[in-house]
Each structure stands twice: as C-alpha cells, then as structure tokens.
Computed example of a mutant assay.
Amino acid sequence: MSLTRTSATFAPPVMEARRWIAGVAFPAERPLINVSQAAPVDPPPEALRQVMAEVALSRDDAHLYGPVLGLPELRAELAGRTAAHYGGAVAPEQVAITSGCNQAFAAAIAALCGEGDEVILPTPWYFNHKMWLDMSGVRAVPLPCGDGLLPDPQRAATLITERTRAIALVSPNNPGGVEYPADLLRAMFELARDRGLALILDETYRDFHSAPGAPHDLFADPDWADVLIHLYSFSKSFRLTGHRVGAIVAAQAFLAEVEKFLDTVAICPSQIGQHAALWGLRNLTQWLAGERDEILARRAAIERGLPMLGDRGWELLGVGAYFAYFAHPFAESSAELAPRLVREQSVLCLPGTMFQPADAQAGARQLRIAFANLDAAGIATLYDRLAAVEG
C-alpha cells in the first residue's frame, strides 16, 4: 500500500495530549491545569459578539460565498494598519484573508513549493508547520537554535540547497516564546533575498510582543514583496479562534497563486469572522492594549517565580507571548514526563519531543507551557506542582 499524504506525518500533538487525561480522576484539591494549547478560553468581548450577532441577523450576504481573498474592506484596513505599524507601503491587493493562520501557511507553501522542495524551519519548530510540509511532500530542513533559542543566519546559509524555497520563522516564537531581534530578522531577510528564497514570517503573536512599536523594519524596504511573505492571525488578538480568520501579506502576483489554493480548499473565509475582525481593528485598539498588558503581566509572573524551579534544576529557555519553554532536570524523556505530570500533578503540557525531529536529543529535556490562560495565582500554583515533581 502506498504512503498517503496524511500518513506521511504524525498525529496532531494537542489532540494526542488530550488523550492523556482520559479516565484520569483529578482530586478536588488539585484540579487540572491545562497549559497544553495556546488559545484563549474566553469568548470575544461582548461588544464584538453583539456586532457578530447583528451581522448574522441583518446581512444576508454574510451567509453566502464571499471573495476568495477576503472582504475588500478588511483587506484594505489590514493593509493600512500593517503599513502604519511597520513604517512601509502595503496595498490592499497585497493582502489576502485566510481561514486562520494555519491555512495562510498552507497556502503559502502550496504556492511556493513542489514535490521534493525544501523549507528551513528553526527547531524547536511549530508542529503544524512541520505537519503541513510532510503532507505536501516538502522536506522540512531543521535549523537547530542555539543560545536563547535564536536561529543563526550563518548556519541557515549552510543548509540552503538547490531545492530550498523558503526560510520559515515564527516570532514571537511558538513554541519557545522568544522574540526574534530586528537585526536577526533583517539578516534572515537579506539571506533569503541573496539566495532567491522567500522569507515566511509568522507573526500570529505580534500583538503581545513585549517591545513597543514595530518589531522589525522589513516592510520599510521598498522591495519587501520580492522576499517577504507575512502571516497574521486575528485568533489571539480578538479571541476569534473558532471563527478562523488569518491573513497573508505578500506580492500581488504571489497572491494570485494563493487564490487557487484558497478557492479549492475553503472558497472563502468565514464572513461573520471577517466582519468581526474588521470591527475589531477599527474599535478594539484600547481593549487589545489591555489584553497585551495582562499577557505581559503573566510573563512577568513566569520570570518572577523562576527561582523556585531553578533551585530544583529547571531552566527557562525562552518566554514571551503565550509561551514558556523549559528544560527539565530529570533523566526520563519529556515524552514520558509529560503524561506523568497529568497523573501525578494534574498538569497537562506538551513535551519538547513534539517540537523536534524524531532523532533530536534536545526535545527529550524540554517542555512547553502555554501560560496565557493562567493568572498570577494560577502560575504560582503551576510552579508549586512542577517543583513537587520527583525524578
């Protein structure tokens, strides 16, 4: 029997981890702490939900197929916001709306790559990126990150072959949380330009970056569209995870290729979700600033409580946006440790083995904690439980 596209990759990690809690009884004094998935658990703010309800009730066209590349008003609004935020020039025709940011990545790869082509992914990598490359017949070339979980452009250069089509980065990073410095992003951009590659930059968590202002100046380059494929998501910013609204910002000619993929897979993004994203961009700036402040406060709580774990041999490798990425001190692999944490400490998190190649040793000592849905008290409780783990 031939290998199918889906059998070429692994099972969805978050779904796999959820199986660990099946049949486990969590005592009342130690309820489950679920830090496995980076998604808001609260619904959108009430004002936004009211807008969505009004759209559903009063706009007949919201229930019909819409433009494949998204609502013109949303494309124009995001183009303007992107240009203003990064200090560059972005036209509405250079924006496509997608059914979530995962679909944006999938569409970009479909438009860039053929069978047997290669894409460089820093490790630890975002597992859905690796899964899509596997299912597309595209080889994911691992670029192991060094100190601070930062990818090295010079090392990336040594991995480029005649089949390389792109370098794909996520910043702030999933799973590591690390915010890539502007000079590193510029170096990767220049490397891609010099070697005739695309730079795919996924900034799903941009709105929770710890630094004020633009995290890079790539859009200020007059020829950015020759190199950059920028991905964005409204899922985290406006809590629209269930409505699946993401975006690609890229060259207009490239989006003509992307349109073929989108039309075949989903025809158009969610109409109600798009109207919600548009209203959010125009009306929720202050609300989103408050959300960012809260995420930064939780990040500070992660850093503030670290000595408790540091004294027991844990190491914080990276933190930012929704994530803290740890090295644990135990001899057992994180693939065994993570399910044990469910049973013994009522903590559900993901092992580093889910973010590394199967033959990489580093993942065995790593764990990802998605802390964005824990307040400071919840983070303190999490630390108490991790500190109680015995090897």
Rank of each mutant, 00 (worst) to 15 (best):
S270Q: 00
D293Q: 06
G320M: 05
L306Q: 11
L296P: 09
W287L: 02
V319D: 01
W314G: 07
A300V: 03
R292E: 12
D311A: 08
F323W: 13
R282L: 05
R304F: 11
G290V: 04
G305L: 08
Y325L: 04
F326H: 10
H275N: 03
G313W: 04
G290P: 14
A324W: 09
Q286N: 14
L317M: 12
A300R: 03
E294P: 02
I267A: 15
E291N: 14
L309R: 02
A276Y: 07
A321W: 09
W287V: 00
D311K: 05
Y325Q: 03
A321V: 01
A327H: 12
P329E: 06
S270L: 00
L284P: 04
A331H: 07
L309F: 00
R304V: 07
F326T: 05
Y325I: 05
W314Q: 09
R292I: 04
L288N: 13
E315W: 10
P269W: 04
L288K: 11
R299W: 07
G313D: 06
I272T: 02
I302Y: 04
H275S: 02
E315L: 14
G320F: 01
A321C: 11
Q286L: 12
S270C: 00
C268E: 09
V319L: 02
E332V: 01
A321N: 00
G318E: 07
N283S: 11
G313K: 04
F323M: 11
R298A: 01
I295H: 14
E332I: 01
E294R: 11
Y325D: 08
E332R: 00
A276E: 12
F323S: 06
H275Y: 01
M308W: 12
G290I: 01
A289G: 14
R292W: 09
L281R: 14
R282C: 08
I295T: 15
A301E: 03
I302R: 02
T264F: 12
C268Y: 09
G305K: 10
L284I: 02
H275G: 03
V265C: 13
A300F: 05
A266H: 14
G305H: 13
A327E: 12
L284C: 10
W287K: 14
I267N: 10
Q274Y: 01
D311Y: 05
G273W: 12
S270A: 07
Y322D: 13
V265R: 15
R304P: 10
A331Q: 06
Q274M: 05
M308S: 14
G273F: 13
I302F: 06
L309Q: 01
I272V: 13
E332F: 00
G320I: 01
G310I: 02
M308D: 13
M308Q: 15
A297G: 04
R312I: 03
E303T: 02
R298H: 05
A300D: 06
V319H: 03
H275D: 01
W314T: 08
W314F: 12
W314P: 12
